[in-house]
Simulated assay, not measured.
Amino acid sequence: MKPDITTVPNLALDKYLGRWYEIARIDNRFERGISNAIAEYSLNPNGTIKVVNSGVDIKTGKVKSAVGKAKMTSVPGLLRVSFFWIFYSDYRVLAVDENYKWALVGGSSSKYLWILSRTPKLLEKEVALVLSEASRRGYDTGRLIYPWK
């Protein structure tokens, strides 16, 4: 079954910018072996968004980071993100807390899903709420890993 990748109807970029901690993710090739992942978003002078993803390599203990850029689209909650030259991928904000405390983010398929938080931990009831939303949308939440645990 294909997941529901409909984005949020409104995204206040000024509230979304800043630091996000990765609470959980579906493992993917570009983050494999990374724990304590953090994403930081800031506005560039040209209106694009600077994206800095960092995390600890579990084999070496060293911090690895990748710098990219994102641009808004005409669809609320849909950004296009690039870490390599001209190749862009969907970054879909599927759900966000009314106070921007947590976010559920996906890509263009069920291969990508992240639970993000403004703090390194979320209350169990908040995690349960986000997991429920992901399940309702058709994601297999059993595939999620929790790299901060």
Rank of each mutant, 00 (worst) to 15 (best):
D4Y: 07
T6V: 11
T7S: 15
T7L: 13
V8G: 07
V8N: 10
N10I: 08
L11N: 04
L11W: 10
A12C: 06
K15Y: 11
K15C: 11
Y16C: 04
Y16E: 01
W20G: 01
Y21E: 03
Y21S: 05
E22T: 07
I23Y: 02
R25E: 03
I26V: 05
D27P: 05
D27K: 09
N28D: 03
E31Y: 07
R32M: 05
S35N: 08
I38D: 01
L43F: 10
N46K: 08
G47R: 14
G47V: 09
V51D: 12
V51K: 09
V52T: 11
N53E: 09
D57K: 06
K59D: 09
T60M: 11
G61M: 04
K64D: 08
G68L: 06
G68E: 03
K69E: 15
M72S: 02
S74Y: 05
P76E: 01
G77I: 13
R80E: 14
V81K: 04
W85G: 00
D90F: 06
D90T: 07
R92W: 09
A95D: 14
V96A: 15
D97P: 12
D97Y: 12
E98Q: 15
W102K: 01
V105I: 09
V105N: 02
S108L: 06
S108T: 01
S109G: 05
S110Y: 05
K111F: 07
R118A: 03
R118N: 04
P120A: 00
K121I: 02
K121W: 00
L122K: 04
L123W: 00
L123H: 11
L123R: 12
E124S: 09
E124M: 13
E126K: 14
V130P: 12
V130W: 05
L131H: 11
A134Q: 12
R136E: 14
Y139P: 11
Y139M: 14
T141I: 15
G142N: 15
G142Y: 06
G142I: 08
G142K: 04
I145N: 03
Y146C: 08
K149M: 03
K149Q: 07
